[in-house]
């Protein structure tokens, strides 16, 4: 249901700093696929997510979601179909607004933000119930400014906001990388829970190979702006971190340099 055809993206085109970030990505994502995306630094993982979300204009190629060609849609229009959680916990929420106001904005994702009351009384019950499942006690703090929350709390809230209205696809860009290990684990468990409950289609970028193997039903590896490995279901379940590394050497046939890839 998500079709990516021959996606090409170059940064600083025509200058000495020209970088080919995506060199023709082809990807078919089925409904309910939970794909983990790995690759060394500069492989194009984040660029791919940003191109899907519409943050970056692409050079060529096509992006289709549910048979709609969204290639030319601006970012805010694509948000009707796509929701995302960023690596930076500060990016997904608005610090100067309260928790309930942030949720109210998310509760209108893809609809008009018009002159109706921002937070309606009937919304609060929903927000409280949704917040309660985070287990962070935020349901008692609806009117607190989001700027008062910790990074982990904000990331959990962002995740909730991203799934408050079921997206066609959820994009997670290393969304636990900036959190401490314990909080990261909590947010990751919440991610798994929300994706399973709502049977979401999701793309999750991670640097952690073990995590990439544990989560989801499919794994893709990017290198040099191309998909160099695409495994799913049993094949993925049977893989180990060593297998992944071996695959990487085999496909690339070159020395494996990035030490971050080895962090497991």
């Amino acid at each position: 249901m998500i079709e990516v055809n021959n996606l090409v993206k170059t940064f600083h085109r025509g200058s000495v700093n020209e970088v080919l970030a995506l060199a023709g990505i082809n990807l078919q994502v089925g409904r309910g696929d939970f794909i983990t995306v790995i690759g060394s630094n500069g492989a194009g993982k984040s660029t791919l997510l940003n191109c899907l979300a519409g943050s970056y204009a692409i050079d060529s190629g096509h992006i289709g979601i549910d048979e709609q060609d969204v290639t030319r849609w601006p970012e805010h229009r694509r948000a009707t179909l796509i929701s995302r959680v960023f690596q930076d916990p500060l990016l997904g929420t608005c610090a100067s607004l309260s928790i309930e106001q942030n949720l109210a904005l998310a509760n209108r994702r893809g609809r008009r933000h018009g002159l109706g009351k921002g937070v309606r009384r009937s919304d609060r019950e929903l927000f409280r119930n949704q917040l309660a499942q985070l287990g962070l006690g935020l349901e008692e703090r609806l009117k607190d400014q989001v700027g008062l929350l910790s990074g982990g709390q904000r990331q959990a809230l962002t995740l909730l906001m991203a799934t408050l209205i079921k997206p066609k696809i959820l994009l997670l860009d290393e969304h636990t990388a900036a959190l401490d290990p314990k909080t990261a684990l909590q947010v990751l468990e919440l991610t798994e829970k929300l994706i399973a409950e709502q049977q979401l289609t999701a793309l999750m970028v991670t640097h952690n190979m073990r995590q990439a193997l544990q989560l989801g039903n499919r794994l893709i590896m990017l290198h040099g702006g191309r998909v160099i490995l695409d495994v799913r279901e049993e094949e993925k379940a049977a893989m180990s971190v060593e297998d992944l590394l071996e695959q990487f050497y085999k496909v690339r046939g070159e020395e494996f340099v990035s030490d971050r890839m080895l962090l497991v």
């Binding site: 229009r77 608005c94 933000h113």
Partner: peptide, 15 residues
């Protein structure tokens, strides 16, 4: 208010 505070966030909410 969100446009003034966090453009990325509010764009991601479809505004």
């Amino acid at each position: 208010q969100a446009t003034g505070a966090n453009v990325q966030m509010i764009t991601s909410q479809g505004v």
